[in-house]
Design a protein around this nucleic acid. Structure first.
Length: 483
RNA sequence: GGCGACAUAGCCAAGUGGUAAGGCAGAGGACUGCAAAUCCUCCAUUCCCCAGUUCAAAUCUGGGUGUCGCCUCCA
């Protein structure tokens, strides 16, 4: 597999540190609010990458942190009169609600800053010992001048940064770009005891400390949004490599932004859409499909019309799944004809194309194209060969299994044991509704048999207004929920 | 100011040297009582512009133009 590595600015062959195993660390959210679509993109992209490694048979160790100690959390908590750690914990629950809806698998570990002070303090101490950090009035700063490779990820030099520094210069710092590893506690803030007094960690050190704890030195993939390259990831590298003397993450992957009217969606610009707002209007599979429909490094412009277009496209895939499910329920033929064998061979080729697409820097857009090609192949088959002689059992199960394989990576649809796709959640209420709809359809069929088209159409239109679409086919009547 | 990315049909989007995937929308046809779904056909002589390299360029080089991003919390 080839992966574009931000560190080297080119695609490289992906060779895991330990054969057969992949270690990944993805920067999670600062939990002071619900997550927005931009956050979701990063998490869905890396979830899908992880799923692809699993599909390929790798054992994946996937870590995603929560920043639950931070200025913004503290400020928010103050405004709402709530304990900061509790507020953060609440938004962690909300994070899971959103990401579960988007069918993202839980990480193996979701470490929190508030539970890793020991590791963080240990790493800060190590940096001081090694001369890469200094203490000023209870604050600890990382000295970027002490680390010769500072700037290697973002491609900037110390000189550039001095020239571009527009931030107020703290005269206690040795270099204007030196950053805080540890901050002295202010009144009313969460704080922990440390060798430098009571305080709390700076932002960047948590990822260095926690990734090391769970993945060790030189783990495989570190991911996050483009905006984390500088300073966050640059600083992580500086901290980790200076502290351990060993190379940090081997492959750095960064996803592009979600934009609104071509402008970056961000909390600070205020032009963001919360995941749950979007999920009120669009199905989760549509949202996930949309997020994967462009290459992960490209910007992705968001608006309702684009989501709607994505939803209509996904409907094609759903229709094909319904067709296959229906065929599997009906009578199938054992004998494998020439047309059957032809389709099976074609689908095997699609499987290979799907994999090559993802092997090339994780090109989900291309992989989705292959999915649509496969859907077209299957539909054509049912239109001709499968229809004339009845569907072949091997074809039906083979086609379904292919789409399930694709889905195990793309994760559009929820799946049960063995990756079986479940289009409807199937709770009791839905069963009841389904029974009622079947009954109404039966009554309508009686009207149709008497050529009472007025009644038949009135029933169909009435159901449509309720969001139930009927399809009269030679094989009988099908119904589904409207998109 | 420094650094970097991108520019492909009405819309979204893949494609890094060999003659433009896929989706949405649209047109025609098949099927249907009519629809829906599905199938078939059509829909960029051309990839922001101008030069250049090459037998061959959307793809490489140079120069423009435009848009966006990072340099400050941000996925």
């Amino acid at each position: 597999m080839q992966i574009y590595n931000t560190l080297t600015r080119r695609k490289e062959d992906f060779l895991p540190r330990d054969p057969g195993k992949v270690s990944m660390y993805v920067c999670g959210p600062t939990t002071y609010n619900f997550i927005h679509m931009g956050n979701a993109r990063a998490f869905v992209v890396f979830d899908t990458l992880r799923r692809y490694f699993l599909y390929k048979g790798y054992k994946v160790h996937y870590i995603q942190n929560f920043t639950d100690v931070d200025d913004k959390i503290i400020n928010r908590a103050r405004e709402e009169g709530e304990d900061p750690i509790r507020l953060a914990a609440r938004y962690i629950d909300e994070f899971f609600r959103d990401m579960d809806a988007l069918n993202a698998l839980r990480a193996d570990v979701h470490p929190k800053v508030s539970e890793h002070l020991e590791e963080i303090i240990g790493m800060v101490s190590l940096l001081i010992e090694r001369g890469h950090a200094y203490v000023v009035d209870g604050d600890v700063y990382y000295s970027i001048s002490s680390y010769k490779d500072y700037g290697k990820l973002s491609g900037r030099s110390l000189e550039d940064m001095q020239a571009g520094a527009r931030v107020e210069v703290d005269t206690r710092k040795k270099h204007p770009m030196d950053f805080a590893l540890w901050k002295t506690a202010k009144e009313g803030e969460p704080s922990w005891d440390s060798p430098w007094g009571s305080g709390r960690p700076g932002w960047h050190i948590e990822c260095s400390a926690m990734s090391r704890k769970y993945l060790g030195d030189g783990f495989d993939i570190h991911g996050g949004g483009y905006d984390l390259i500088f300073p966050h990831h640059e600083n992580e590298i500086a901290q980790s490599e200076a502290a351990t003397g060993k190379p940090f993450a081997r492959y750095w992957m960064h996803n592009g932004f979600i934009t609104i009217n071509q402008e970056k969606m961000s909390k600070s610009l205020g032009n963001f859409f919360l995941v749950r707002e979007v999920l009120d209007k669009f199905a989760p599979e549509t949202v996930r499909f949309f997020l994967l429909s462009a290459h992960y490094r490209s910007p992705l412009d968001f608006d309702d019309e684009k989501l709607a277009s994505a939803g209509r496209g996904l409907e094609r895939v759903k229709n094909c799944l319904r067709l296959l499910a229906e065929a599997a329920r009906g009578a199938v033929r054992d004998k494998v004809s020439g047309a059957d064998a032809e389709l099976l061979a074609l689908l095997d080729r699609r499987r290979q194309e799907f994999e090559s697409a993802l092997e090339d820097d994780f090109n989900t857009a291309l992989a989705i194209g292959v999915l649509f090609d496969a859907v077209g192949d299957i539909n054509s088959y049912f239109h001709s060969a499968g229809r004339d002689e009845g569907p072949c059992g091997e074809v039906v199960s083979g086609a379904m299994s292919l789409l399930e394989k694709f889905n195990s990576v793309l994760g559009f649809f929820r799946s049960g044991p063995g990756g079986k796709i479940m289009l409807d959640s199937g709770n009791g209420e839905e069963e009841l509704a389904g029974g009622l709809i079947d009954l109404i359809i039966k009554i309508r069929q009686e009207a149709r048999s008497k050529k009472d088209w007025a009644t038949a159409d009135s029933i169909r239109n009435g159901l449509k207004d309720l969001g139930i679409v009927l399809e009269d086919t030679p094989q009988g009547v099908r119904w589904k929920k409207q998109v």
